[in-house]
Amino acid sequence: MSVLSAEAVGEAHRESFWRRHLHVFLLAPGVAWMVLFLIVPLIMMVYVSFWTQTTFAINSTLTTKSWSTFFASETYYGALVRTLRLWLTVLALTFIAGYPTALFIGQFVRNKTFQTVLLVTCVIPFWTSFLIRVLAWRPMLGKEGAINIVLEKLGLISGPIEVLLFTELSVIIGMVQIYVVFMVGPIAFMLARIDDSLLEAARDLGASPMTIFRKIIFPLSLPGVVVGAIFVSVMVLGEFATASALSGRKVNLLGNIIVTQVGSLKWAFAAVVGVVLTAVMAVVITGLLRLVNLQKEL
């Protein structure tokens, strides 16, 4: 009996140990992945940004010359400002275009199957290559493109509108079309979760449709707005392909500078721009997360 008791105690002790440390074993793979493929690369990027860069070589002697060059140059500082300006513009336009669509899908379409069909329809463009979707705007926006032809046929313009292509406007149009679905999805998800009885109670109490939207619908959909804004922000801030393809390389964003510097083997300066871009993203995401407690709301 004593041997059996000792074995039972040992088994219970081992089971208790596994239960106490189960969360550690469950977290270990994710933590290891984040450390190896996020934290370590970020540390290396910061470290390389202080290396000494010459025209044809780079060495590990630490210096702040690349940082000084970035902030002292009007070209690179202008790219930072332009990146932020386009980000704010695209973010605002994706919200303006995406929220009504999400409101229709989440509140006015009551059939769940039809809701799914509409959401799938929104992502149909993603069945094709990203680059093809970007380049498809060229024949649409050009001086002899579809938009100008239609406007001329309707008599709305007397000559082609030249600012539609190879300008910041064309980049904004392309980005909004590509990324608006990332705003629609999370908002539609949150709107579909709103209890109908809550809206019915508000109507019974005499609340107008605008009051219901302002006091109930929009606040409850705000977590979806924040999630959508994070998706759009991360992708727009890191953009380079859309700007290159639709601006004729006339609009340089931080992402374009990184690609150019890496192509020129200027690793130190590319690392500087990467650190700046990462810091901007961190500030933007932190600011958005302060609007809503996503852990509580989701």
Rank of each mutant, 00 (worst) to 15 (best):
F56S: 13
A57M: 09
A57N: 15
A57W: 11
A57E: 14
A57H: 11
I58M: 15
N59E: 09
S60R: 09
S60T: 13
S60Q: 15
T61V: 14
T61K: 10
L62G: 06
L62W: 06
L62R: 13
L62C: 05
L62P: 07
T63Q: 14
T63P: 05
T64N: 10
K65A: 14
S66G: 00
W67C: 02
W67K: 00
W67I: 01
S68R: 10
S68N: 13
T69C: 11
F70M: 12
F70Y: 09
F70Q: 08
F71P: 10
A72K: 10
A72V: 07
A72L: 11
S73P: 03
E74M: 12
E74N: 15
T75E: 12
T75Y: 15
T75K: 13
T75I: 08
T75A: 12
Y76G: 05
Y76E: 13
Y76N: 12
Y76W: 15
Y76A: 10
Y76C: 05
Y77D: 04
Y77M: 09
Y77W: 04
G78P: 00
G78D: 09
A79Q: 10
A79S: 14
A79V: 09
L80Y: 00
L80E: 00
L80C: 03
V81D: 04
R82M: 13
T83E: 03
T83M: 01
T83S: 14
R85T: 13
L86V: 09
L86D: 04
W87S: 03
W87Q: 06
W87E: 05
W87P: 06
W87L: 07
W87K: 08
L88F: 14
L88W: 09
T89W: 08
T89S: 12
V90E: 04
L91A: 10
L91W: 06
L91V: 09
A92M: 14
A92C: 11
L93G: 04
L93K: 01
T94S: 04
F95T: 00
F95S: 01
F95Y: 01
I96P: 02
I96K: 02
A97L: 12
A97F: 09
A97T: 07
A97N: 03
G98E: 00
G98V: 00
G98L: 00
G98N: 01
G98M: 01
Y99H: 01
Y99I: 03
Y99T: 07
P100A: 02
T101H: 06
A102N: 05
A102S: 03
A102K: 06
A102E: 01
L103W: 15
L103A: 15
F104C: 04
F104A: 07
F104G: 04
I105S: 04
I105N: 03
G106K: 00
G106I: 03
Q107S: 14
Q107V: 07
V109P: 00
V109L: 05
R110S: 15
R110L: 15
R110T: 11
R110W: 08
N111Y: 03
N111S: 09
N111L: 02
K112H: 13
K112W: 07
K112L: 03
K112E: 11
K112Y: 03
T113R: 14
T113F: 15
T113Y: 11
T113M: 10
T113P: 03
T116W: 06
V117M: 06
L118E: 03
L118P: 02
L119S: 00
V120Q: 07
V120Y: 09
